[in-house]
């Protein structure tokens, strides 16, 4: 039973990754900005399915909802903007240099990835004395939560969540300040 599911899931991973790569290439290379944004949605839903098959249902739920909201934001930015088609590319020399640098990074990264253990071994959990083993072993006893991810984000590593709340707060303040309507008038008025 277990052998069959193991054999089944590797082609699923490859198919989903290829789907995401094809969607990314279309999103990068298409001229129409709206279809490129919709391809981003395809990548996000592919990633959500991938998380589901990687045994991470928490992230799959979050990713699929975040993707919907992100699509709303992106479409809000691109729709009803008349000049979204940009033809032509940058200077030839700059493009060549960028592509060469990106290729060098790719080759170096492939070399580094070869030193990793093969796919399917939990790299952190296999290490002796790693924190992950403690979380799995003692998570239920110490925190009482059956969902180990919840016990990690809200009990063991709650500082991470506090930092996340701060970053979210800051990004909203930034968006509000950038998009406020009366910026010029408020600047001209003297402080009270």
């Amino acid at each position: 039973m277990m052998e069959r599911t193991v054999r089944m899931e590797m082609p699923i991973f490859y198919a989903l990754l290829l789907f995401m790569i094809i969607a990314t290439i279309i999103a990068v290379e298409t001229k129409n900005l709206l279809s490129s944004v919709i391809c981003i949605g395809a990548i996000g839903f592919g990633a959500s399915l991938m998380f589901l098959f990687l045994r991470a249902p928490d992230i799959a739920i979050t990713q699929i909802v975040v993707e919907v909201l992100g699509l709303v934001i992106l479409i809000r930015a691109t729709i009803s903007r008349d000049r979204t088609f940009i033809t032509g590319d940058r200077e030839f020399f700059g493009v060549v240099v960028s592509v060469v640098v990106v290729l060098v990074i790719f080759l170096a990264g492939i070399k580094v990835l070869e030193t990793l253990p093969p796919f399917g071994t939990a790299v952190f959990a296999e290490t002796a004395g790693a924190a992950s083993q403690t979380y799995v072993r003692e998570g239920l006893e110490k925190t009482g939560a059956a969902n180990l991810v919840a016990s990690v984000i809200l009990d063991y590593r709650a500082y991470d969540t506090l930092g996340e709340a701060t970053v979210l707060f800051t990004s909203i303040i930034g968006a509000t300040v950038i998009l406020r309507r009366k910026s010029r008038k408020l600047l001209e008025e003297p402080d009270i």
């Binding site: 991470a56 928490d58 992230i59 939990a122 952190f124 924190a131 992950s132 991810v149 990690v152 590593r157």
Partner: peptide, 9 residues
């Protein structure tokens, strides 16, 4: 491993 999942969340 629950740890990378929590960080990615």
């Amino acid at each position: 491993d629950p740890l990378p999942q929590a960080l990615v969340l």
